[in-house]
Simulated assay, not measured.
Amino acid sequence: MAKIGVLIVCLVLVAMDVVAGILSMEAQFAKNKVITLKRLRTFECKESRRKAFKLGLASAVLLALAHVTSNLLSGCICTSSMEELERSSTNRKIWFACLISSWYVFFIITCL
């Protein structure tokens, strides 16, 4: 039963990534439409710019949510049993060190 739950969570995270990618492509198309409308000097430009911004923002939020969720879930799996982490393979220890260092880098970049 636990493996089915993990599979469902993975599929939801992948679906979130796919939807974020589709939203980002739509935002890019809307942005290109703004550039075209600016050249034609029409008044519809402001509405297209807002649409592009909203789509881009939704894409970024969805992508960030998917990645934060996946990193937190993978970190919880590793830190749930420190004895198991100490007995784990070298590859898993390196993976865990990379996960922790990626969070350090994230916090350093956001604080600057």
Rank of each mutant, 00 (worst) to 15 (best):
T79G: 08
I108F: 10
V19D: 04
L112H: 08
A30E: 03
A60T: 05
A30H: 03
F53G: 04
L37A: 09
S70P: 00
A64T: 05
I77D: 09
L63F: 02
L99N: 06
G21I: 01
F29A: 11
S80H: 08
S70G: 03
D17E: 06
L13E: 04
S89A: 05
L57W: 10
K54G: 12
A20E: 01
R49T: 11
L40F: 05
K38A: 12
M25Q: 09
F107I: 02
D17R: 01
V12T: 09
S102V: 00
N32H: 13
L37Q: 06
V105I: 07
E83W: 08
H67R: 06
R39D: 12
L57F: 14
A27W: 00
L99G: 07
L85R: 07
S24M: 12
S74Y: 05
I4R: 13
L13T: 03
M16R: 02
A20K: 00
L99D: 11
K31S: 14
E86C: 11
R87Q: 14
I35N: 11
C10Y: 09
L63A: 07
L11C: 12
S70D: 09
I35R: 09
L72T: 04
S48Q: 14
W103V: 06
F53E: 07
R92Q: 15
A27N: 00
I94M: 13
I22K: 05
M16V: 01
Q28W: 08
K54W: 15
V61E: 11
A27D: 01
L62R: 02
D17T: 02
T42F: 02
I100C: 11
